[in-house]
């Protein structure tokens, strides 16, 4: 996965705001953490890598690999069960894979629950399970531990590390919590180093 010479501007009430400037970035298997203060373009970079936003110039290339995305918000379908939330994003319904991911994320007991019946931690697990259910080769995670207590965060970090390792996934995680990134990532890239003139290569 690579991004080359990415520029991204936003129009705000105060005028033109440049978020990403000549940013280049490579990531390979394992978990890469992107860190930096709020408003420095971490989420924007992740969204560009996922194809949710287009850069003003430059290219982001994921080699057509399958992407799983853990959004900052849970973004769960409120009216359907956890199982149907996972089935929703599958190319073809595959109950076996859903059961496997539910087991992997500790959600087997909650398969038939509605999202509103789950705790915050469980909802984050469902968001992670949804990102994994289509066997992604690239996993992008935007502040995946927001709103979770330290115990839950630690448990989820351990799970993610195992899942990424076992499945040979290239993962990029964005967080402004340095401690979370250190516990989770094999390498951490401060966005300030690659935004502007810098470049990071795996």
């Amino acid at each position: 996965m690579k991004a080359r010479h990415i520029y991204k501007n936003y129009q705000t009430a105060a005028g033109n705001c440049r978020v990403l400037s000549d940013l280049s970035f490579d990531a390979g298997p394992g978990i890469t953490g992107l860190t930096g203060p709020s408003g420095t373009g971490k989420t924007t970079l992740l969204r560009i890598l996922a194809g949710l936003e287009k850069p003003d110039s430059g290219t982001a290339d994921t080699d057509g690999k399958k992407i799983g995305y853990v959004f900052q918000e849970d973004r769960l379908l409120p009216a359907v069960s956890v199982r149907r939330n996972l089935e929703f994003v599958q190319e073809k319904p595959d109950r076996g894979r859903i059961d496997e991911v539910l087991r992997m994320t500790g959600l087997t007991e909650k398969a038939d629950s509605l999202p509103d019946e789950l705790s915050g931690g469980m909802k984050r697990r469902v968001a992670l399970a949804r990102a994994l259910v289509s066997k992604p080769e690239i996993l992008l995670m935007d502040e995946p531990f927001t709103g979770l207590d330290p115990e839950l965060t630690a448990a989820l970090i351990a799970d993610i590390k195992t899942i990424v390792k076992e499945n040979g996934i290239t993962a990029v995680v964005v967080s402004h919590q340095q401690g979370e990134l250190e516990a989770l990532c094999s390498r951490i890239v401060p966005l300030s180093q690659i935004n502007g003139s810098g470049e990071y290569s795996d």
């Binding site: 995305y69 973004r75 379908l77 009216a79 929703f88 289509s134």
Partner: peptide, 27 residues
């Protein structure tokens, strides 16, 4: 719109979107 964007990302087919995303919202 956040749910719609999620469905776009995973290229969810129209029938499934109607069933699980739009119809519950439309109910």
């Amino acid at each position: 719109p956040l749910l719609v964007e999620m469905a776009d990302l995973y290229r969810v087919p129209a029938g499934r979107r109607l069933r699980d995303l739009y119809f519950p919202a439309l109910r």
